[in-house]
Design a protein around this nucleic acid. Structure first.
Lengths: 182, 182
DNA sequence: AGCCACATGTAAAGAGTTACATGATTCC
DNA sequence: GGAATCATGTAACTCTTTACATGTGGCT
């Protein structure tokens, strides 16, 4: 049920359309919460029906019109309530790790190749996220940013995403090497 | 659809009952694929109906009888097929990160407290996983183990789980400190 | 008798994925 | 005209979660 809250959080200090959220979820948010664009539209509609968001048509020139969404007071309350509610620890759920777990049933070379490919993807994503984080700092030191910025949420969550991708890349390379050495 | 394959992989070189799998998934496997015990029984029944597993009643003394499951040839084939199939990158999906993302809507102290609590849980879990990994080595060096052991899958996947929990703990502590310093 | 570990499920509701669908506008 | 980007959805299916359900046997 956190997709709803991820959407609310993404709209905390700005108005965005479904399409803009799609791109945001593809790149930045996906590092800690993945969702397909279709699902975003479904949940945006529900959130609006529940009065947590309001949508406004924006007429554009040179491209199709869009509907941007804004948090309502009820939406902000709901988000605050969510941050206070207890959460159970969740963990990784990754096909690739299940494949590694099943290593004995796999062709070592082919599994290693998949791991190396994923390592590369994760490295790319980690780099992108690092750039985004650097952009948020706007020249300030991290320490200063965390003390003074208005909304440090995206920086905190984005940092976890960057760490995750870096670790994933490192583990994939290590596991691939282990398989290659057999 | 990887729960099926995680079950098959867990049965790669041993017979286990639903209850034993429950405990395995609670502790070891949960670090890379979480599943509730009810779901295990449902999927075990399906896997048996699909001919990928066979179940055998085991009469026990001093405790209720159990049914242990064993991979069939078809089950092993299916697992091998799975390891060859392409996989899309998946990522974290964690309520706690969404909460961090929504930091601006949260009470900093209360969110920090939740992060610190999670840091503690992750540290405990990382420690448990480290012990399990050390047990697998049976005194050998990691390098030797990876070269010579029969089935290195659990060690590879378990290592990722341990890394994840360690990183999670480190990030949680860092993020909590950032929130406390405001 | 009461509690705990062992042992195995069913049913309903909720969330997410996959496939399908449509249309506007710009640029080449 | 065709491709790419912008823009928004629906429907069917699969998977997961939550709540409910039941029973054995040892220990105190």
């Amino acid at each position: 049920m956190a997709l709803r809250h991820a959407l609310l959080a993404a709209l905390l200090d700005r108005e965005l359309s479904g399409y803009q959220l799609t791109k945001l979820f593809d790149l930045d948010v996906s590092s800690f919460w993945h969702a397909a664009s279709q699902q975003l539209y479904v949940d945006l509609a529900k959130l609006e029906a529940d009065g947590l968001l309001t949508g406004h048509e924006v007429v554009q020139q040179g491209r199709p019109n869009k509907r941007v969404f804004r948090l309502t007071h009820a939406g902000l309350d709901e988000l605050t309530r969510f941050t206070l509610a207890p959460t159970k620890p969740t963990s990784i759920r990754d096909d690739l790790l299940v494949k590694a777990y099943a290593a004995r049933a796999a062709d070592p070379g082919k599994l290693a190749a998949q791991l190396e490919q994923r390592a590369e993807q994760s490295r790319t994503k980690a780099q992108y996220l690092a750039e985004q984080l650097a952009r948020l700092l706007e020249g300030r030191s991290e320490e200063e940013y965390l003390r003074t910025a208005e909304n440090i949420g995206p920086y905190l969550a984005g940092t976890r995403g960057r760490m995750y991708e870096e670790e994933q890349a490192a583990w994939c390379s290590w596991a691939a090497a282990a398989l290659r050495g057999r």
